[in-house]
Design a protein around this nucleic acid. Structure first.
Lengths: 335, 335
DNA sequence: TTGAAAGCGCTAACAA
DNA sequence: TTGTTAGCGCTTTCAA
């Protein structure tokens, strides 16, 4: 398993090992002839550059840390896929870690990544506290937050315009004739969700509707929680014709609860989600939703981070992307 | 951004830097008193060990390469999640890469990972060729294949008993009264799929049924392909009461095609999948399927690899896990 | 128990 | 154009 080094190649080629290094790094101060000869020998000997050693002297690992709450979540896994693609295209690789939505773990992972000398970190924070808990590290390693809107925080982040997204959703339901729209999934501790709730409330007000909430402060946007809350909700009288769910996963839970009691979507109740996770486009589900442009989110996040690294930028940037409406079949026109 | 090194700490503590190293690594040849004092200073100075430098001398990066065809696939992302957890528990981190199901990319990624000096590689191969294309590297870096059954190949792999899984599926449908079961998704280039097809055929024979195939050799197990093939299939006369799909994604495509022409599942047609991806348990979908135990697949793969690394094992192991049937609502009893 | 020094594989400044 | 050498931050042998 002993691997061949630059010295082995040098010996075989009868040159000094710095000459081999020059041939490998594409340095101009070497004759084309010897370069070819050395490269040929490298191939024959199955030489591969030891990136770790190179990193040591270059003080750059070309490694990006990616901290997600969980890849095992359709939204994040899609993000992770595009992030890998974009990063690789720009010559970087990804170290992946899941924080399980735990701020303390995020902190530990930050330290771990810094120890590993990653050139930068991309983090999908679990909530507002993340930023505060991580603050101490942010001056030590280039970081870009993704997904969560950090408002006026002096740190780079890329997120979607959640406020506008909620407005788009309300306007869409309004255009279908809905005048009583329930907002489902209001939640504390996340700016993303605060902005969505605000966007909903303001749009209602502007259109002359009364905001209605299903008041839950649960911490998870899982299908299960959506299901449980919806169960409870459906046991009460319904004075709304549409539900606008804060996340697609919540919407999926609502769908399940509706299914169980024979409540027809969209015939008897319209349902609109937010995120456009992969699941939502599945046959039979066909959830209408407000989409977060995941591919672009990933590309912008990676580019922002790499630019920050390569240009040693000291400022920060807030990039807010526009959400769009995806019409499928979970919303119907009011008769 | 200049980080503090072992030398800075040594200077501050008034000791040589090898003493600091000893305090950090938990070496016994140091007094408890000075260790405490040094550790305290490290904390005060925000010292973090440079893992890259340590890796150089230790000749171990505590990094595992994970090559998937795509994390943006519910099966793989679940796997990736559990792999990260298990690896982290054992002190390793993951470098994630997507091969896009391309054997040449797999080869490139292998070289890349070797250059990065990963301690081992976990690969979900795209097919049978993978093994052949990668052969040259396998003696140079500990590798464990995951998901794909490599038959008698002298390399470690962890997979599910696909042959048995297909049998379980057929037996289940048989027990529901089905006597004409169509196998959907037979595919070349993958042992996994060959074994599933064999398991299906043998089970049919044993039960006195005639194997029927929807003969497609497509290369993708996406929903889209399932949908397209099913469209075509449904335009012909149906002489079967159940479809056994080679993968859940294919089954989802079938479901979509059935939906479109108003063919009721399970009332008019039973549908059974294979894999038990997350999507299959969604409300409204409720696909019955043969499950691959993903968490265990991940844990066994990681453990096999790490054991191989740490014990410098030279042999190989084939671990075949048992699939189980997940009953949901896409299969009905024949009247 | 501690310090001095070698060396991991590489890049780059300096000399020739 | 090529070789020599220092040094990246760390662990570990050898001496003290």
């Amino acid at each position: 398993m002993k691997s061949v080094t630059i010295k082995d190649v040098a010996k075989a080629a009868g040159v000094s090992y710095s000459t081999v290094s020059r041939a490998l790094t594409g340095s101009p101060e070497i004759s084309e002839e010897t370069r070819e000869r050395i490269l040929q020998i490298c191939r024959e000997m199955n030489y591969t550059t030891n990136t770790v050693a190179r990193s040591m002297v270059m003080k750059s690992t070309k490694l990006l840390g990616l901290i997600l709450t969980s890849v095992n979540n359709p939204f994040m896994s899609e993000l992770a896929y595009y992030i890998d693609r974009q990063a690789r295209e720009r010559g970087y690789n990804i170290i992946l870690c899941n924080s399980s939505r735990d701020a303390e773990q995020e902190r530990e992972l930050f330290e771990l990544m810094m120890g590993r000398q990653v050139d930068g970190i991309l983090i999908f924070p679990s909530g507002m506290d993340s930023y505060n808990k991580l603050r101490a590290y942010l001056s030590r390693v280039p970081t870009v937050f993704i997904g969560e809107n950090l408002r006026e925080a002096p740190e780079s982040y890329v997120s979607v315009d959640n406020y506008r997204g909620a407005q788009i959703g309300v306007e869409y339901l309004y255009s279908l004739g809905h005048r009583n729209i329930l907002y489902f999934g209001r939640r504390r501790g996340s700016t993303t969700h605060q902005l969505r709730a605000e966007g909903y409330a303001d749009a209602c007000r502007r259109l002359g509707l009364t905001p209605q909430y299903c008041n839950n402060t649960f911490s998870s946007s899982s299908i299960k929680y959506g299901y449980q809350m919806a169960k409870q909700l459906f046991s009460q009288k319904r004075n709304y014709s549409a539900i606008f769910a804060a996340t697609d996963t919540n919407a999926l839970g609502i769908m399940q609860a509706a299914e169980e009691i024979g409540l027809k979507i969209p015939e008897e109740l319209s349902l609109l989600g937010f995120d456009n996770i992969h699941d939502s486009g599945l046959p039979r589900i066909e959830l209408s939703t407000v989409e977060q442009p995941k591919k672009m989110l990933a590309a912008v996040a990676v580019d922002t981070l790499i630019d920050k690294i390569q240009n040693e930028l000291t400022g920060y940037s807030h990039r807010i992307l526009s959400p769009t409406l995806i019409e499928r079949s979970s919303c119907a026109r009011v008769k």
